[in-house]
């Protein structure tokens, strides 16, 4: 059990001493999660909005599929993305295997169902009254769309935070697609896996705490954003 206490001390030491390996992993984690979040939000928010907003045939079935995809195992996503990005895979020539953008693709796939499902739920919850109100105040179709989107901003924010949590903490995709390459694709989670593999449990705990610190700061800034 003493490695947990050791982990706390070490986490502090790593952060204060600006340990280059740790900061390289932090930077890689932040970069890759930013890419994947940007991609999944750009694609997922409009899709989630449509899914919650529009009434079309097969909507319920699509909703069911999206909800099922919420349980995508990360290792499975990693494996599939690896198969596509491998040099013998269909997109091998893009050279994305063992790169951060490659991991980001996998993580975006992981985050996409979360963003879509939670955005759709948020949009569904605003129901007919908003639409009625906006049209009765003279909103055109474009304003109707934009204002509705703005109205669900907290729902979208919640979707983003949830997806961010999943993306930041996953290890299967980063390991499989990124390869845990030191100074390049080693993220905090793959570093934890490595340190644990090496039997350095204290270091693993320390890195886990670092990840929690980052999550804490993300959530603090989000709640600040909400207050404004």
């Amino acid at each position: 059990m003493d490695f947990i206490a050791e982990g706390f001390v070490q986490a502090f030491r790593l952060l204060v001493s600006l340990d280059p390996e740790t900061f390289s992993a932090i930077l890689a984690t932040l970069k890759v999660s930013s890419y994947s979040m940007a991609a999944s939000l750009i694609v997922g928010v409009p899709l989630g909005f449509l899914l919650g907003y529009a009434r079309f045939k097969g909507r319920k079935q699509i909703r069911l599929i999206v909800d099922t995809l919420l349980s995508l195992p990360t290792v499975f996503v990693g494996l599939v993305v690896y198969a596509f990005l491998s040099n013998r895979g269909p997109f091998g020539e893009w050279g994305l295997l063992f790169t951060l953008p490659g991991i980001a693709i996998g993580q975006a796939i992981l985050a996409l169902p979360i963003v879509i499902a939670l955005t759709a739920t948020a949009v569904e919850s605003i129901d007919d009254h908003l639409r009625l109100t906006l049209i009765s105040l003279g909103a055109g179709r474009k304003q109707l769309f934009l204002t509705s989107l703005w109205e669900v901003r907290y729902g979208v924010l919640a979707a983003a935070v949830t997806a961010y949590g999943r993306v930041m903490t996953e290890v299967g995709i980063s390991m499989m697609v990124g390869g845990n390459i030191k100074w390049h694709t080693r993220t905090i989670t793959t570093a934890i896996a490595l340190e644990t593999n090496k039997g350095l449990f204290g270091m693993g705990v320390a890195l886990g705490l670092v990840l929690l610190f980052i999550a804490f700061f993300v959530n603090v800034s989000v709640s600040f954003l909400r207050k404004r």
Binding site: K31, S34, Y35, A38, A39, L41, I42, G95, L96, T99, L100, P101, A104
Partner: peptide, 17 residues
């Protein structure tokens, strides 16, 4: 913000290549 994100992604993808 979105535009900036897209830009960053594109740039970093290029730099990787």
């Amino acid at each position: 913000t979105l535009a900036i994100c897209v830009l960053i992604i594109t740039l970093s993808a290029l730099s990787a290549l």
